[in-house]
């Protein structure tokens, strides 16, 4: 009992850091939830763009607006990140990059590749 009560307690949460693999994992989840919330927006864009010439041009006009551009870029970024992180999952299902070091390398690759794709996507939009 005395062992239990004298056990050291670490109350400083800032001294704990997530490993890179955990950050990549939580971002995969967060981007998935964001994409789910974005489904109605994407369906609305598809619906409006297919309704007629006027509506189609209205959507492309919307895309010139900064706020809309940022929203679309955010959604596409979440999609790109989720896609790249998902491909890493499929590779790990095939026993590629399953070791501790392999997992770290994979996590770094996901951040690097998706970051590059997000920049390219932004360049394409602007």
């Amino acid at each position: 009992m005395s062992l239990r009560t004298s056990r050291p307690v670490n109350l400083n949460l800032l001294s704990m850091r997530f490993p890179l693999t955990a950050i990549v994992s939580i971002l995969h989840r967060a981007s998935g939830v964001l994409l789910f919330l974005a489904i109605p927006l994407l369906l609305w864009v598809l619906q409006t763009s297919l309704q007629g010439e006027e509506q189609f041009l209205g959507i492309t006009d919307h895309l010139d607006h900064l706020v809309w551009k940022l929203v679309i870029w955010l959604v596409l970024s979440a999609l790109l990140y989720h896609l790249v992180a998902g491909i890493r999952h499929l590779l790990m299902d095939m026993h590629i990059g399953e070791s501790k070091q392999g997992g770290r390398c994979g996590a770094q690759a996901v951040l690097a590749i998706s970051g590059l794709l997000m920049i390219l996507c932004g360049a394409w939009l602007w």
Partner: peptide, 19 residues
């Protein structure tokens, strides 16, 4: 979420078949 996802599916089919 389950009901919402189902509605999105039906909405999507409606969009596609109105083209």
């Amino acid at each position: 979420v389950i009901v919402g996802s189902l509605l999105y599916l039906v909405w999507g089919i409606d969009i596609l078949w109105s083209v």
